[in-house]
């Protein structure tokens, strides 16, 4: 199938992009790597009147590196992260996750911001950035705001972003030298979207323990009491956590999420 008709603009600055988006109203859409939007357009499941191409905006490509955080431009590609072309404050988690996304040809185009904005429940960055408690810088017609990724996703393919807002960058806290992380994804084949994801980060120096379930029906599930995962009867605990996350016991989804969580915790050791 072929995409429906749309207009296309490639603004030179973020300000121009925002102007085009507000003028375009609900029927204008941002185009970044096009690796999610492209298939949706081809299937005619997305029908924007106008695409505003932000892939090469300099504001969205800039990265910053300071003492306690790293900021990655929203248009940084999965491949750039995989190859370590941008700073990684997680000692390898980012590269590891990036390498597991789709296929290289997709990673060369697909962007961090696009993945977050697309908010596929099974997407890797959505879960990863919630795990790391990353923050987004979002620009809109009325200025900028900062948003926790945890508050971004409202449901499958739905976020709290207004149609004329653009994710500019993602700010990630820097993990301490002895921090540990674990990311377990269950999918049927490489490049397939996940059936279940669980991720854990333990950073004692910063007093941080976070654990997240991904590939949920909607937003990732931040496990309320992650400390408990670090000791105790993980089998019963994992099952209980998954039940409380919303999956009914004795379902396929419950089973694979519970196993995934156990394996993520085991992988931390």
């Amino acid at each position: 199938m072929k995409a429906p008709h749309f207009e296309y603009e490639k603004p030179a600055t973020l300000a121009d992009a925002l102007r085009l988006l507000s003028a375009g109203g609900d029927n204008a859409k941002v185009l970044a790597g096009g690796q999610s939007l492209g298939p949706l357009l081809n299937l005619r499941m997305a029908r924007p009147d106008l695409l505003v191409d932000i892939r090469t905006l300099p504001e969205l490509r800039a990265c910053e590196d300071d003492a306690d955080s790293v900021t990655l431009g929203a248009a940084v590609t999965h491949a750039a992260i995989e190859d370590g072309q941008v700073p990684d404050p997680t000692h390898g988690l980012l590269a590891r996750v990036a390498q597991g996304i789709a296929y290289r040809a997709v990673r060369n185009r697909g962007t961090l911001g696009g993945s977050l904005a697309h908010a596929d429940p099974a997407a890797d960055w959505v879960t990863t950035m919630v795990l790391l408690d990353a923050e987004l810088r979002v620009a809109g017609a009325d200025g900028e705001r900062v948003l926790r990724v945890e508050d971004l996703v409202e449901g499958p393919l739905s976020t709290c972003l207004a149609p004329d807002e653009i994710i500019v960058s993602v700010r990630l806290p820097r993990l301490s030298a002895d921090a540990r992380w674990s990311y377990y994804k269950f999918n049927r084949k490489p490049g397939e979207f996940a059936e279940a994801i669980a991720a854990v980060v333990h950073d004692p120096a910063r007093g941080v323990v976070r654990a997240v379930l991904g590939a949920m029906e909607g937003a990732p599930h931040v496990i309320p009491d992650p400390h408990a995962l670090l000791g105790g009867d993980i089998d019963a605990l994992a099952a209980d956590i998954v039940t409380r996350s919303g999956f009914a016991p004795d379902t396929y989804e419950h089973r694979v999420h519970a196993v995934t969580l156990r394996r993520a915790v085991a992988g931390l050791a």
Binding site: K10, G34, G38, P39, N42, R109
Partner: peptide
Amino acid sequence: IDGAPARSCIAFAVA
């Protein structure tokens, strides 16, 4: 595209 493999079915020529 620019020296890196890419899917040409989901890239638009304008882009």
